[in-house]
């Protein structure tokens, strides 16, 4: 999980949704395979990374997690800037968190790239008996709005891996199809092995010399 591996792409993915839906635990489940029953309220922004292999490519997922109640333009713009994927999370046991999905979507499209890959994520399927958002409703909504959709449980580690993998795969699909049409692969790929820290001149590779 270190950052000193080589990778072909860095994809920035943001987690959004109401407070308490489990964004931070989805993040920790995916990046560290951990779940914290009493994680603290996220204040401002959190950040974690994980490198995954997608076919022959190494992709570094840079995942940003934000406080559910944060509403500042100057923060949101810094937060969404450069994001190529988003997981819009609600809690399947709390209908209110689902009702605000539309508002989140609007905020996302207001600030992020219009081509951002978005997945609607219904979290906490481990609390199935308390479900208040039917799967079909959310699925329909996702379809109508061109979003990917999955239900997850960060607690039981259900679908978390798949959710992120699907989003990253879709991002890659979008990016690479653009590469083909534009024929500018080298301009997109941030390839070349990455040194442990930028402060080691010896380790540098002239990654973009061919430009």
């Amino acid at each position: 999980m270190g950052s000193d591996e080589a990778y072909n792409f860095v994809f920035k993915v943001v987690l959004i949704g109401e407070s308490g839906v489990g964004k931070s635990n989805l993040l920790s489940r995916f990046t560290k395979n951990e779940f914290n029953h009493d994680s603290r309220t996220t204040i401002g922004v959190e950040f974690s990374t994980r490198t995954i292999q997608l076919k022959s490519l190494i992709i570094k997922a840079q995942i940003w997690d934000t406080a559910g109640l944060e509403r500042y333009r100057a923060i949101t713009s810094a937060y969404y800037r450069g994001a190529v994927g988003a997981l819009l999370v609600y809690d399947i046991t709390k209908h209110l968190t689902y009702e605000s999905v539309e508002r989140w979507l609007k905020e996302l499209y207001d600030h992020a790239d219009p081509h951002i890959v978005v997945m609607l994520v219904g979290n906490k399927t481990d609390l199935g008996s308390e479900r208040s958002v039917p799967t079909e409703d959310a699925k329909d909504f996702a379809e109508k709005n061109g979003l990917l959709f999955l239900e997850t449980s960060a607690l039981e580690s259900t679908n978390v891996e798949t959710a992120f993998q699907n989003v990253l795969g879709e991002i890659h699909r979008k990016v690479s199809s653009k590469e083909v049409t534009r024929g500018s692969i080298s301009a997109v790929s941030l390839s070349s092995p990455v040194p442990r820290a930028a402060g080691d001149p010896e380790e540098k590779k002239p990654c973009c010399r061919n430009l």
Partner: peptide, 15 residues
């Protein structure tokens, strides 16, 4: 070399 930049900035959809 765009050292720090290229290593640190994520890819942008809008290239």
């Amino acid at each position: 070399q765009p050292l720090l930049k290229s290593e640190s900035m994520p890819v942008y959809l809008s290239q």
